[in-house]
Nucleic acid binder design. Structure first.
Lengths: 120, 120
DNA sequence: TCCTTACATTGATGGTTGTCAATGTACGAA
DNA sequence: TTCGTACATTGACAACCATCAATGTAAGGA
């Protein structure tokens, strides 16, 4: 049996866990929270959207329709899901909505995975 | 406009990309591949299953039914999805199947996210 | 050869999700 | 105020997914 650092997620931080194996499993609530974020990343259109937004400091919704080749309601649907997962944030200025990534949330999610694989 | 490192995934490595912005978006194929892995992580039961397996060097399928409170076919369904995503591997010995995590794949996925957020 | 055990597969079902046409809303320009 | 534009919302539909009962398979033990 290994004594690796299991997956442990708290509200907004990830900790390398030192608890006994009996406490190593993700709780139901923690797993649901993390799964909903992974769910937001589990779509090719949303991943390409996220990479488009990440490649600039700000991107307007109207600049996403073209590259992603999806209808305007579909773009709006996907930006909403990414925003609800805390991965992007939008700001309305005039008639346009400008989106930018939330790097802290991306790192948060990344650490959920790396911590768990320290025992390699 | 930032000159950040966009999301770039190759077959089994992640590279901090230096290409112009016009090439910064994930390709359709790259996005589909990454999305399918995130899809495997987008379920609370599978995340708890993964953390259970990651907390030991090896876990038998029969040791997952109890903690996860799911039927045997459901457990079998989820181990299959995690395995097809390359996140775990199974080995049959006698009547039992022993599962272990593939840490390389977890780190691979984690780097997809961290690389993209370097521009913080 | 039976019987039990560990796991996979099949089939069915209810819930979720991606997509878009149609419509609503709110802002700016004329 | 009227019109066009940027985006959100609604409603509908097809595809996908999580779940489990029933059944299949294969390995050990008696």
């Amino acid at each position: 049996m290994s004594r690796s650092n299991p997956l442990v997620v708290t509200d907004d931080s990830v900790v390398a866990c030192c608890s006994p194996l009996s406490e190593s499993a993700l709780s139901d609530g923690e797993a649901r929270e993390a799964a909903s974020i992974f769910g937001a990343l589990a779509d090719p259109v949303r991943l390409r959207m996220l990479s488009l937004i990440a490649s600039e400091t700000e991107v307007c919704s109207c600049a996403l329709e073209g590259p992603l080749e999806k209808s305007q309601p579909t773009i709006s649907h996907h930006t909403r899901i990414l925003a609800e997962a805390g991965l992007i944030e939008g700001e309305k200025r005039g008639r346009w909505t400008w989106w930018h990534v939330v790097p802290g949330q991306l790192n948060h999610v990344a650490r959920i995975l790396t911590v768990s694989s320290l025992h390699s």
